Simulated assay, not measured.
Amino acid sequence: MPDSALCSRTVLVTGATSGIGFETARQLAERGATVLLHGRTDDEALAAADRLIGTAGIDAGRLSVCSADFARLEEVETPARTVVTAHPHLDVLVDNAGIAAPERHTVTADGNEVAFQVNFLAHYLLTCLLEPALIGDPGGRVVNVSSSLHRSASIHWADPNRARRYSRLAAYAQSQLALTVFAADPRVTAVSVHPGVCETALLPVYAHQGVSASEVATHVVRLCDPTVEIVNGAYYDRDERVEPAPGATDDRTVRRLGTLADLLVGRTA
């Protein structure tokens, strides 16, 4: 059912081809938003759009697709340029794409631990590149889909790739802590959310049981709604605003993470 608050909104959802991302895109489109579906490949993004059109009855005119493999940072720049050109004002960016850290320590061609890159660094780079479209008037917002596991994490500043001591759970938790800290970056208005444990490919990282991706996605969609007021850096556990891990919104930590991320993605001041 179209929602007047979302009908004029344009939202980019990363990792929109399955799980929470797909359900978030579906619910936003059903409520009248224009949704940009990101997938790892063109074929995956187009297949997701076809599913929304064919099974959910979404108007094809409210959907567009883009692709980038977040394990390759050079691929992030192309969809970012396309989005900024086609949508000079972007209302919401949902940083959702994510992977479970592999059992064995894995480094991308860019030289970064793969979960840290896919779950955080690629989103950091994408958000920076989309900044011109997000800070117009009225300003847009970023919703980072994080995890309660960020509370068990620490960022290994001297060894973010965890080359010296690797644990898949610790690597995944570090990526989620970084994403949560990034929400407090003052350059764009952003929040992070633990939407709940659901039945996706990431379930083994959390637990043995979870609820449906559709149910979990409602907590993400809520934060995309312009009638829901947000405070930069806020962290939500489902629909409840709670304090994130100690230090996650500390100015020094936010600046330090930005400096590290700029170095790892190759951005210069």
Rank of each mutant, 00 (worst) to 15 (best):
Pro2Lys: 14
Arg9Val: 03
Thr10Gly: 03
Leu12Lys: 01
Gly15Lys: 04
Thr17Val: 04
Ser18Lys: 13
Phe22Lys: 07
Arg26Tyr: 01
Ala29Pro: 02
Glu30Arg: 13
Ala33Leu: 05
His38Lys: 09
Ile53Leu: 09
Thr55Arg: 13
Thr55Gln: 12
Ala56Phe: 07
Gly57Asn: 08
Gly61Asp: 10
Gly61Ser: 10
Thr85Lys: 15
Thr85Val: 11
Leu90Cys: 08
Ala101Gln: 03
Asp110His: 06
Gly111Arg: 06
Leu125Trp: 04
Pro132Phe: 14
Gly136Leu: 06
Pro138Ala: 09
Ala153Asp: 04
Trp157Asn: 08
Ala158Met: 11
Ala158His: 13
Arg162Gln: 12
Arg162Ser: 01
Leu169Thr: 11
Ala173Arg: 01
Val181Phe: 01
Val181Gly: 00
Ala183Gln: 02
Asp185Leu: 00
Arg187His: 13
Pro204Val: 06
Ser212Pro: 02
Val216Trp: 04
Val216Asn: 00
Val220Glu: 04
Val221Leu: 09
Cys224Leu: 11
Pro226Phe: 05
Val228Asp: 07
Glu229Pro: 05
Asn232Val: 06
Gly233Ala: 05
Arg238Leu: 05
Glu240Leu: 12
Ala248Met: 03
Asp251Glu: 15
Thr253Glu: 15
Val254Glu: 10
Thr259Glu: 15
Leu260Ile: 02
Asp262Tyr: 03
Asp262Ala: 14
Thr268Met: 15
Ala269Asp: 14
